[in-house]
Design a protein around this nucleic acid. Structure first.
Length: 625
RNA sequence: GGGCCUGUAGCUCAGCAUGGACAGAGUGCUGGACUUCUAAUCCAGUGGUCAAGGGAUCGAAGCCCUUCGGGCCCGCCA
């Protein structure tokens, strides 16, 4: 049993009692008590019925408590009416602890069937393949990855896509750099190719446009050649973007993120997808050819505020126009023009596919009944237009969902390290201007720090182990910091602050896991679960057990609200409950052998649950640290 | 001008969807706890007109309206 069942029992009994007393139906709430002195569970039914019964909430609660006390059911030992009007319940701890521990050692603990195995597509990452990933991209990647993991736990059949925008202006920019900027094709020794392209070639090239107007002309010629797809330039662009992509993916994999399929924008452009959608929109009258005004000669979509150009007067498609067939494709509205080939096998064993227009004779299906596109909320306007068009295509209501989030900015102090004086204000990142902090760099710096810390604490561990731990902790720290706050809060990234490993951080949570592992290791033998847990009666133990018992409730909440933060908070709360327990309750030196065993079971139950919860965040649980 | 987001402790944020019992964490600062299952920890203290004003409600940080800060978006760029 988990807390869910305790709540369900109380809800059903209260409802029954209300019926018997002739009270009218009310949508009352059964939830955890806000403070320990109010017991474990509270119900607000008294407040809701006060008006219709013309009685004080306390009177109503009293009458229900009275009835409830006649038969308290299985999981409740005390029922009381509080003078405030609440109905409060105390749980049957021996039974609760027992059931929670037993449930938590099941392989699929925390799983909850919301998705009913329906197909859902999550698209995230989608970074232009002309630069390395910076901390702003990391937020997108981690949100998308965490959501995918949570949805999977909630029994959705999840497909993860990464859209590679390999035919846009930014790609033309680096080609200009290589062709006319005098940049070597090979990066300096020791520098990753994606860093080289972004930090050196891209930034320097965009700078040169200001002084050399002929470069812009060269760029538009290159852009045209890219779209046509058969030229030497297109081939060269393809090589560059694929090389950058390969390096970007290394960073993603390092973060523990994997995908199912890479979709290349160039292929969408060269396939007939756009033409199909264009015709469809024309025949549906969603778009029109502008006859006059500033957009004369363009195909535009009439939006509520401003019209949006889809096809330029020279006949080429804009960025948003390319996104529409892709969105439709993701929902399976269009015939799939692609074949598929294997890109690689990722480290978790998941095969990564890529689309191709060559006939490989392999047809796969990466579409979904619903699509979640993770893009920062600065693109909400465009995403709204796409959502609107997709709903005009009669996809099921709400099937295309833009999951937006606020951006990551750099703190004034961190900007200063990039030689940027912002006058004490934080600053928006910009790949073009070179204002960003690369993800690999952050992980490397974090890794050095976590390595030193781990070595200090574990002099007996060998080099390989220490490196492994430091990497796990560095990634835990970064991932957690990207997910712990709400999506609509701006994250101000500060390098110094990001090195903090104490308090509400990933490492704090990982540390609690390592502590639990150490107890189990020193305990020596596998604890025996077929015993009574009634001796686990300190508040430290019951609070920990209750926290463990909330896992599936949190998964449900996170999945329904697409809110990764909920799982982050749960992991933190779980770790706090364990650390408090750890400081106050001795396990291995408990009074009796039976008590040692019972506590070992609780510790085991905790570590299993934390491991599962952390895995939803893509954070490894280290055995030592 | 229009749209979206945001304002809670010195700082960073939970809580707001579904109104209810004295508004919670982390961090900072002040003190305390390692011969003990790892102190990346724990304990105590400090710290709040929940931006302001109004409204509906028995009851508002939360709902409605207004105002004021802050951020972002409104291109034949992506």
């Amino acid at each position: 049993m988990t807390l869910r069942l305790l709540f369900a029992e109380i809800r059903s009994n209260v409802k029954k009692i209300c019926d018997n007393l002739g009270y009218q139906q009310a949508e009352f709430d059964v939830s955890e008590a806000s403070r320990p002195e109010f017991g474990d569970v509270s119900c607000n039914v008294g407040f809701l019925l006060a008006k219709s019964l013309k009685k004080r909430p306390f009177e109503i609660a009293k009458s229900i408590a009275n009835e409830y006390n006649k038969d308290k059911g299985k999981f409740v030992t005390e029922v009381s009416a509080h003078s405030s009007g609440y109905l409060n319940f105390v749980a049957n701890y021996p039974l609760l602890t027992q059931s929670v521990i037993q449930s938590s050692i099941q392989e699929n603990y925390g799983q909850i069937d919301i998705g009913k195995n329906s197909k859902i597509v999550v698209e995230h990452t989608s970074v232009n393949p002309n630069k390395a990933l910076h901390v702003g991209h990391v937020r997108n990647i981690i949100i998308g990855d965490t959501i995918s993991r949570i949805l999977q736990k909630a029994c959705y059949d999840v497909r993860v896509l990464n859209y590679v925008d390999d035919s846009g202006l930014q790609v033309a920019d680096i080609i200009v750099g290589f062709r006319y900027g005098g940049f070597s094709r090979e990066p300096p020794k020791g520098q990753k190719f994606d860093h080289y392209c972004g930090d050196v070639v891209y930034v320097n090239t965009t700078e040169r446009y200001e002084n050399d107007p002929t470069l812009a002309t060269k760029r538009s010629l290159i852009l045209k050649e890219l779209e046509e797809g058969k030229s030497e330039t297109a081939k060269f662009g393809d090589e560059i973007t694929r090389h950058v992509l390969e390096e970007q993916l290394k960073t993603c994999w390092r973060l523990g993120v994997t995908y199912d399929c890479l979709n290349f924008e160039s292929q969408i452009v060269r396939s007939n997808l756009w033409k199909n959608v264009f015709d469809k929109m024309k025949s549906m009258g969603i778009i029109e050819l502008e006859k006059e005004g500033k957009n004369v000669g363009c195909w535009v979509i009439k939006a509520e505020s401003d019209d949006k150009v889809l096809v330029r007067s020279d006949g080429t498609a804009t960025y948003i126009a390319k996104d529409i067939p892709y969105a439709a494709w993701k929902l399976g509205i269009l015939d799939d023009p692609f074949y598929y080939k294997q890109y690689s096998t990722q480290r978790d064993g998941r095969v990564l596919w890529e689309t191709t227009l060559e006939n490989t004779e392999t047809k796969l299906n990466f579409t979904g009944d619903a699509v979640i596109t993770v893009i920062d909320s600065r693109q909400s306007r465009l995403q709204n237009i796409i959502t609107k068009i997709i709903s005009d295509f009669k996809a099921k209501e709400g099937s295309y969902f833009h999951l937006g989030y606020e951006s990551v900015t750099l703190s004034a102090e961190t900007a200063k390290t990039l030689n940027l004086d912002t006058g004490g204000k934080s600053v928006q990142m910009s790949g073009r201007k070179g204002i960003y902090v690369n993800a690999d760099y952050v992980l490397d710096i974090l890794g050095v720090k976590t390595y030193e810390e781990a070595k200090k604490r574990n002099p007996d561990l060998n080099e390989v182990k220490l490196v492994q731990i430091s990497e796990q902790v560095a990634i835990g720290a970064l991932r957690y910091s990207m997910i712990k706050q709400d999506l609509d809060k701006i994250i101000t990234f500060d390098m110094t602050e990001s090195l903090s490993l104490e308090g509400d951080t990933g490492p704090y949570i990982q540390y609690s896991y390592a502590r639990a592992m150490r107890i189990l290791e020193k305990g020596g033998k596998t604890p025996s679960f077929g015993v009574s847990f009634s001796d686990l009666n300190t508040s430290y133990e019951t609070i920990l057990a209750k926290m463990i018992g909330k896992f599936d409730i949190q998964v449900e909440d996170a999945a329904k609200n697409l809110s990764p933060k909920i799982i982050a908070r749960y992991c933190y709360d779980l770790a706090v409950a364990f650390n408090t327990f750890y400081e106050h309750v001795k396990v291995l030196t408990a009074e009796s052998e039976a008590l040692v065993n019972a506590r070992l079971c609780l510790v085991y139950s905790f570590k299993e649950t934390l491991d599962k919860a952390l895995s939803l965040l893509g954070i490894d649980a280290p055995e030592r640290m």
